[in-house]
């Protein structure tokens, strides 16, 4: 099999790698934002968030993937029987723990004054968060989110352990099936991962700088 053929086989794994990363990223936003605001503004229950973050940041993804997929599948075939779901679920919740920390810094950057100004016009705490804090939080977290996204693209490689045919799984199969060529498939895979990570992080950083200029930071 020539290099080009191998490359095509790997490319066919890109949609899966991308969709796992993007879904996980989105889950990370949706779960991570509330976690961050709870830690900053609901001090009484922030210990729960703290525990959550410690667990998801402290346990290797590969352990979590195996645990949720093979551990929970017998008891909850739906949804844990679905490898794609488990991949997004685990990587998403792990990302939420990371993103929560990114947003916490960003909330400090936006500043408590914005929150007070929001409450002064009649918003409740959580509605001020929604209308005033969240739109500004992203301006302060673009560089952190860029590297978080890169991390997700890379970590999506771990899902080969639950048998999803994404880029890493395909590299591994090519390496095993070929006549002892372990270099080509993995170099090609590495190139694909680099191509997937950087453009988005770059664009996000640019967008963030533009936004920051607009609001005068």
């Amino acid at each position: 099999m020539d290099v080009w053929q191998q490359f095509i086989i790997l490319l066919e794994g890109v949609p899966l790698t991308l969709s796992i990363s993007i879904f996980s990223f989105l889950i990370g936003i949706v779960v991570g934002l509330p976690l961050a605001f709870i830690r900053v503004y609901e001090k009484e229950i922030s210990f729960v968030v703290d525990a959550y973050e410690k667990i998801f940041r402290g346990v290797p993804e590969i352990v979590l993937l195996l645990l949720f997929f093979f551990g929970l599948r017998p008891f909850f075939p739906f949804p844990f029987g679905n490898a794609f779901f488990v991949a997004c679920f685990v990587l998403g919740l792990r990302s939420a723990a990371n993103q929560s920390q990114i947003y916490r810094g960003a909330i400090r950057g936006v500043g408590d004054e914005q929150m007070i100004a929001g409450m002064s016009v009649g918003f409740s705490k959580w509605r001020a968060i929604w209308y005033i804090m969240i739109p500004q939080v992203f301006n302060f977290s673009t560089s952190g989110l860029g590297s978080e996204y890169a991390l997700l693209i890379k970590d999506s490689a771990y899902v080969y352990v639950i048998g999803l045919a994404e880029v890493m799984t395909r590299s591994l199969q090519l390496a095993k099936s070929g006549p002892g060529d372990y270099v080509t498939p993995f170099v090609l895979g590495a190139a694909i991962y680099i191509a997937l990570t950087f453009p988005f992080a770059f664009w996000l950083d640019k967008w963030g700088n533009k936004r920051k200029k607009k609001i005068g930071l």
């Binding site: 004054e113 007070i116 002064s120 009649g122 500004q136």
Partner: peptide, 17 residues
């Protein structure tokens, strides 16, 4: 109640976005 009170801040605190 706060909706019925107007508040103007020393450091203005407009919503920057």
């Amino acid at each position: 109640a706060r909706a019925r009170i107007g508040f103007v801040f020393q450091h203005i605190y407009l919503f920057r976005h």
